[in-house]
Amino acid sequence: MQTLSEQPSKVYQTRLDEKKRLVIRNPQYTYYEVREFTDGHIELLPRVLASPDDVLSARTVKMMDTAVSHLNQGIVSSPVDTSLLFSLLDADERKEVEEARASAKGQA
């Protein structure tokens, strides 16, 4: 939890406009969490959007922790039998797999 500074760096008066919006002068952030209190005071806490790539489920992390520990001990599944998987795909997906196979030959 962020600690709020006791001494504000700026103090100014503002008022709601006709659409009941407040203006923040020269804001440092784009996104804020707004906390409204019953006594009328409001806190704005800066927020930064996280990329989906930067966030994981705690369950996924635990899943990987266990998998890597086992892998380090030489414990993994048998190789997947991929012979029947191609038939699950639609035409576009099959084309993509064929492209991947062709590109691998090009890289070899």
Partner: peptide
């Protein structure tokens, strides 16, 4: 070694997230 979203999270309304950083 892992998949995201975790299959059990699909059945939960909320789940714990971890920021990679």
């Amino acid at each position: 070694i892992g998949v995201e979203p975790h299959p059990e999270d699909a059945t939960s309304r909320g789940y714990e997230r971890v920021e990679l950083s």
